[in-house]
């Protein structure tokens, strides 16, 4: 589904991603962990072309995509993204947020989009808040709306960049439950998260990043119970 090869990214002189190779198969859930500044966000943002890597290739569905492509917005329709700080559109209602892409990107008639929006809000447990503005709902609710908004585009893959780390602890569970349900439905997902419970239960594979490299990857059991690399061990001992 997604193949990243030899990806290198610099911010000025700062080498942020170093020869990243990674594949994500259809239906797979991959969790990325690593210290702050190790390049997790940058990697995920490169997959969505929100950042441009200077070297290497990204293949989506067998199609090699260059960041120079004029059609990046078409590719982004296939890739959903959920942000740490939600980034809901504050001037639109919850429903408005969810149907924005359907109506203005896909050109779906509004009534039809609203039906679809209801279905999606139902799915994330937010149907009763369809008509309120994002400023009136909690962080956990915002994030579930953001997930519905991304799902509306019917993406082939969903990227999550620390979707629960800006939330109060008691709100994390609802968001993780929605994500777990998505995974059960067969969605291909790449998730940056330090929620180990979620990773153990949902992830097919865990990737550990350190200073711009993928240092170790394996099943959740392999990574959490039996890390081989010293740095992985050290990192895990800090977050446990």
């Amino acid at each position: 589904m997604i193949k990243v090869s030899k990806l290198n990214k610099w911010y000025g002189k700062h080498h942020v991603l170093k020869d990243i190779n990674m594949t994500v198969d259809a239906g797979e859930v991959v969790v990325i962990i690593g210290a702050s500044g190790s390049g997790k966000s940058t990697l995920v943002r490169c997959i969505n072309f929100l950042e441009k890597a200077q070297k290497g290739t990204i293949t989506i569905d067998g199609q090699v995509i260059s960041h120079k492509s004029k059609k990046l917005h078409l590719i982004r329709r296939e890739v959903g993204m959920v942000f740490q700080h939600f980034n809901l559109f504050p001037h639109m209602t919850v429903m408005g947020n969810v149907i924005e892409g359907l109506v203005y990107v896909k050109g779906m008639p509004k009534e039809e989009a609203i039906e679809e929006g209801k279905r999606l809000l139902e799915k994330v447990g937010m149907a009763d808040k369809a008509d309120v503005y994002p400023s009136m709902i909690s962080g956990g609710q915002k994030q579930r709306v953001a997930i519905a908004r991304a799902l509306a585009m019917n993406p082939k893959i969903m990227l999550f960049d620390e979707p629960t780390s800006a939330l109060d602890p008691e709100l994390v569970g609802d968001v993780l439950a929605v994500m777990q349900q998505l995974a059960n439905d067969g969605m291909t997902m790449v998730v940056i998260t330090h929620e180990m419970g979620f990773a153990r239960e949902v992830a097919d594979r865990v990737i550990y990043m350190d200073e711009g490299r993928i240092i170790e990857e394996g099943t959740p059991e392999e990574i959490y119970n039996n890390p081989k690399n010293e740095r992985t061990k050290e990192f895990l001992s800090k977050i446990l």
Binding site: R77, P90, A146, R149
Partner: peptide, 27 residues
């Protein structure tokens, strides 16, 4: 306007002009 707004628009597959008109300008 927070740059996350533009990124959210991009991630929905909106063109730059669409993002300006629908998301940035109203705010």
């Amino acid at each position: 306007v927070d740059r996350g707004q533009r990124e959210a628009g991009k991630s929905l597959g909106m063109t730059n002009w669409m993002i300006m008109r629908r998301i940035i300008l109203p705010q």
